[in-house]
Simulated assay, not measured.
Amino acid sequence: MNLIIQGKDLPTPSLKALAKLTSATAIEAISPMAFRLVAADESQRAEAAAFCEAHALDFGWVPAGRRISDFGLLVMDMDSTLITIECIDEIADMQGLKPQVSAITEAAMRGEIDFAESLRRRVSLLAGLDHSALQRVYDERLQLSPGAETLLGAARAAGIRTLLVSGGFTFFTERLQPRLGLDYTAANTLEVADGKLTGGVVGDIVDAQGKADWLNRVRSELNLAREQVIAMGDGANDLAMMGEAGISIAYHAKPMVRAQASYALNQVGLEGVIPLLGLNAVEG
Results as ranks from 00 to 15, higher is better:
A17I: 04
D183M: 06
L10S: 07
K20A: 15
E53Q: 15
A64C: 10
R258F: 00
A155W: 06
D207R: 04
A46I: 11
E117N: 13
G65S: 14
S132Y: 03
S248W: 00
A40N: 05
L74F: 13
L10V: 11
A40K: 02
L126R: 01
R141S: 13
G65M: 11
A193R: 15
F59A: 09
E149N: 09
G96P: 10
R179P: 04
A108T: 07
T12C: 10
G278W: 00
A157M: 07
K254H: 09
N266M: 08
R217D: 05
L180W: 09
G65W: 09
L222K: 08
A92T: 05
A281K: 12
P99I: 12
A155Q: 07
E174H: 13
S220D: 15
T150V: 14
I4Y: 10
Q95E: 14
N237H: 08
I247V: 15
D139Y: 09
D213A: 15
T81M: 03
A24C: 06
G96Q: 10
L129T: 08
G203N: 13
L182R: 01
R219C: 05
Q95H: 11
A56G: 01
V202E: 10
A50Y: 09
W214V: 05
Y138I: 10
I274S: 01
Y184S: 05
P13W: 07
P13F: 08
S145L: 05
A208N: 03
G128H: 10
A225T: 14
L224I: 07
S262K: 00
G7F: 01
E271C: 06
Q209L: 13
V101G: 01
G65D: 15
V273L: 03
V257P: 00
A40C: 09
P63G: 09
A34D: 05
R66G: 02
L239A: 02
L152M: 06
F35E: 03
Q135V: 09
G195A: 09
D204F: 02
D77H: 06
I5Y: 00
R219K: 14
F172Q: 04
A133E: 07
A92N: 07
